[in-house]
Amino acid sequence: MTQVYNFSSGPAVLPRDVLLTVQAEMTDWHGSGMCVMEMSHRGKEFTQIIHEAEADFRKLLNIPANYKVLFLQGGAHFNFSMLPLNLATESSAVDYVDTGHWSRIAIKEARRYAKVNVVASNEDRNGTYVPDEASWKRSDNAAYLHYCSNETIGGVEFQHTPDSGDVPLVCDMSSNILSRPLDIARYGLIYAGAQKNIGPSGMTLAIIREDLLGKARAGTPTMMDYQVHAAADSLYNTPPTFAIYVAGLVFKWLLNNGGVGAMEARNIEKASLLYETIDNSNGFYNCPVERPFRSRMNVPFRLADEALDDAFLEGAQAHGLLQLKGHRSVGGMRASIYNAMPLEGVRALTEFMRDFARSK
């Protein structure tokens, strides 16, 4: 098969070694005679799979013992609702930082359940930066402070962890979790959809400090209570077993390749190469994001002459460079270069970009 590089924003590329392991184990997991998709989620085989996945995930992020790791369903969208239902009341103030599309969806959903205070927004500069913390207008008694660490569509990424003081810090880390080391102890809750840096779609991981459990308001649906899932070790109901299995393989791949520290170094190298190509193109390409806030995971860029967009995408496709069209809400191009994207893929993309620019 011809080599291709998939720059999709999610569901996204998975490590080839992981896919080969899945292929080899598809009909017979470790001599059990069963595919993981056929196993009882309460049997000894799957119990081993989920326990190893959690242990490896904890090791990768050095997660303290007083935090629960939850394997949930429903995607990050589900957590947009779970969060205020579990950590706030109808009369609570909840603080949100608005840095783009996914922040705004989270804010819209939270307004159904609590009093949202938008502490800062980047809409004044078309969503191209992270507002300085000194300008944030925080509530006096917020139940939590929420932010999205990496906006997949806009390509804006926090390069630091906000200081929330005694207020629980909550983060949607769907598109950059496991891409760099974290100090988990600074957070109350982290949640992340799996389909970018973890595994297949349909699963979300949550890391929640134990003192925040058991506070769901009356009337919260059972399946939306973090405490219910924590008490059952993510097995309250049938979990996304195959997604957990693949995620576990991704965690082992990360550990075998140096962990998140090594991933960060690789991600910096890949992003630097792509941004340098854009910035050194004499205006042929441009990135709308202000430089200090550029994402290492999702790189949006435009051609100065948008009439060439279709030709660019067709040429890229012919060179095995897939899924480069920007989100429908913003247009242009976007290259998502998550952990599983090899440096060779970014080199192939930048070579094509330079050749395409020279030919026009």
Rank of each mutant, 00 (worst) to 15 (best):
S179G: 07
P181D: 05
L182Y: 07
L182K: 05
L182A: 01
I184N: 04
A185R: 15
R186P: 01
R186C: 05
Y187T: 03
G188N: 11
L189Y: 11
A192I: 13
A192S: 14
G193L: 00
G193Q: 07
Q195A: 12
Q195R: 15
Q195N: 13
Q195S: 13
K196Q: 05
K196T: 09
N197M: 08
P200L: 11
S201L: 01
G202T: 10
G202A: 05
T204K: 03
T204D: 02
T204M: 06
T204C: 11
A206Q: 03
A206H: 03
I207M: 05
I207E: 03
I208N: 04
R209E: 13
D211A: 04
L212C: 10
L213K: 12
L213P: 09
G214V: 10
G214N: 11
K215P: 01
K215R: 15
K215I: 10
A218D: 14
T220M: 13
T222F: 08
M223H: 13
D225L: 02
Y226V: 00
Y226K: 05
Q227P: 01
Q227V: 05
Q227A: 10
Q227K: 14
V228C: 07
A230R: 10
A231M: 11
A232G: 01
A232V: 06
D233P: 06
Y236N: 03
Y236K: 02
N237W: 07
N237M: 08
T238Q: 12
T238A: 12
P239D: 06
P239E: 08
P240G: 00
P240S: 01
T241K: 15
T241E: 07
T241Y: 00
F242H: 13
F242M: 10
A243C: 08
I244M: 09
I244R: 10
Y245C: 09
V246R: 13
V246Q: 08
A247V: 12
A247H: 02
A247T: 14
F251T: 00
W253F: 04
N256A: 13
G258I: 13
G259E: 05
E264S: 02
A265E: 08
A265G: 02
I268N: 02
I268M: 07
E269V: 04
E269K: 15
K270D: 05
A271D: 01
S272I: 08
S272K: 15
L274E: 00
Y275R: 07
E276V: 05
E276A: 14
T277G: 12
T277W: 12
S281M: 13
S281W: 14
N282L: 05
F284K: 11
Y285E: 10
N286I: 06
P288Y: 08
P288E: 02
P288Q: 06
